[in-house]
Write a protein that binds this DNA or RNA. Structure first.
Length: 421
RNA sequence: GGAGAGGUGGCCGAGUGGUCGAAGGCGGCGGAUUGCUAAUCCGUUGUAGUGGUAAUACCGCUACCCCGGGUUCAAAUCCCGGCCUCUCCGCCA
């Protein structure tokens, strides 16, 4: 959420951002609400002052045995006026909030913008030739992911991993968690997978993405679309100390997405799922550090692919692809050599104080002021598409694949291996 | 799920209708004392909004004692609803 004052001072920038992110906001209405609110607030404060003085006077006169009846009458009148203005004010504030909550975060100046803008390739690592069988054939032939039975048990896009592929999932998750805790100094957390409305509002999934979320029918809970949601909310409504920053959490979670509106895309296989596994990095930083730490997180996510010896590229998303809450997002796309295409396996974003403001996450700075932290997160990584790239790169035949050497080492020696890499 | 108790400032804790933004203590900050540490003493110490102003300095006003309503001239204090925590019982992994 953006600050009222900020919007007033930077109207042009905010309008431009909304245009770029394809959000329609009635700014004239918003600004007239700002005015209305201010006027109501001012007269309300004056009336309240009058009320307090009157009440005080009642107590005073009563002590002296004087007649207080006229004051009681006056007090009643003032209170009625106050009630009226309060009602008007809360009406205005509700309307204002209804608009404010839809305004997306502003963009970093480096984000590609403009008519024909497109993503910018920041880095290319490895070679991008197409060869071998596709992961889908290998999995089908080996039976290590059973799409049919997954569908029978649940629905389509809920795969059932069996044997080797199930094991690969588990090893990969542990491998990534151990990498980030031992090598990159993150603290591991294991969060709830069901969260409430406020939590999703803080991180910005709600209200905009409600249709992408699984919601429980009888309880006010949503299934998390990413661990970012519960983990960023760990410090909701709290004031942190300056010296505790940066705070770095890594979390594994299953992720649940309805993927509404993406029918027809990636209709089979592991590319687009309603449930998948992901290891997520989350940081809370001081405002002046977030840019630098954003770059660090990108490197940490890349590290996973480097260790697995997979080819990939890093792209900087253009304005219209940058999510509602984000000011700047890098995607990491792994090269799937059997399929011959890039697959997004990570999204690394800087949210500045946008989420912190929605969730009231602050820290006390040296001057004793409470200021909003900056929040960042990045996938490190999502498993299904990583698995696709692994299977295609380390395939043995059209019905078998091997594990990458680093994973074999990891299975043998555990997290000790991260001392050397 | 049933029964009971309770939610007050960074923390502990007093306050049951009227100078209460809230005693006292701890912690924090500033200072005095001090060979160092500890101890002691003095002072200070919430957040947000708004007006005086150009000001993150100063002064005034308003709001906030879990949240939302209500009663009253006046609510931390009384009433109603909700949420949460704790204890006991039940159930279960």
């Amino acid at each position: 959420m953006l600050d009222r004052e900020f919007i007033i001072k930077n109207r042009e920038l905010v309008e431009k951002t909304c245009y770029a992110k394809k959000v329609k906001i009635d700014f004239n209405n918003l600004f007239s609400l700002f005015d209305k609110r201010k006027n109501l607030l001012n007269s309300l404060n004056l009336l309240r002052e009058e009320k307090n003085k009157n009440s005080f006077e009642v107590a005073n006169r009563r002590k002296n045995g004087e007649d207080v009846n006229p004051l009681l009458e006056k007090g009643k009148e003032i209170s009625q006026k106050i009630k009226k203005i309060e009602d008007g004010l809360s009406g205005v504030e509700i309307q204002e909030f209804e608009i404010l909550k839809w305004i997306p975060n502003i963009l970093d100046p480096e984000v590609p913008t403009g008519e024909n803008s497109t993503f910018k390739i920041v880095k290319e690592q490895g070679d991008f030739s197409k060869k071998g069988f596709s992961y889908f054939d290998i999995l089908q032939n080996s039976g290590s992911v059973d799409f049919k039975r997954g569908t029978k048990i649940s629905a389509s896009h809920f795969p059932l991993y069996i044997g080797k592929a199930a094991y690969l999932e588990r090893i990969l998750i542990n491998f990534m968690l151990d990498l980030h805790t031992t090598k990159h100094n993150y603290t591991e957390v294991f969060p709830p997978f069901l969260v409430n409305y406020d939590t999703l509002f803080s991180t910005g999934q709600l209200p905009k993405l409600e249709e992408d979320m699984y919601k429980l029918k009888d309880d006010e809970f949503f299934l998390i679309p990413t661990a970012e949601v519960p983990v960023t909310n760990i410090y909701k409504d709290e004031i942190l100390t300056e010296k505790s920053l940066p705070i770095k959490f890594v979390a594994y979670s299953a992720c649940f997405r309805r993927e509404a509106g993406s029918y027809g895309k990636d209709t089979k296989g592991l590319k687009r799922l309603h449930q998948f596994n992901k290891v997520e990095l989350v940081r809370f930083t001081k405002p002046q550090d977030s840019k630098k730490e954003h770059q660090e997180m990108l490197k940490e996510a890349e590290k996973v692919l480097k260790l697995l010896d997979l080819s990939y590229r890093v792209i900087l998303l253009p304005d219209y692809d940058t999510s509602f809450s984000s000011s700047k997002t890098y995607d990491i796309e792994v090269w799937a050599e059997g399929s011959g295409e890039f697959l997004e396996v990570s999204s690394v974003s800087n949210f500045l104080d946008f989420q912190a403001r929605r969730g009231k996450i602050r820290f006390k700075n040296k001057e004793g002021k409470n200021v909003f932290v900056h929040t960042l997160n990045g996938s490190g990584l999502a498993t299904p598409r990583t698995v696709i790239a692994i299977i295609e790169k380390y395939q043995i035949s059209d019905d078998d694949f091997d594990f990458p050497p680093i994973l074999k080492d990891y299975i043998k020696f555990g997290k000790e291996i991260f001392k050397e890499v």
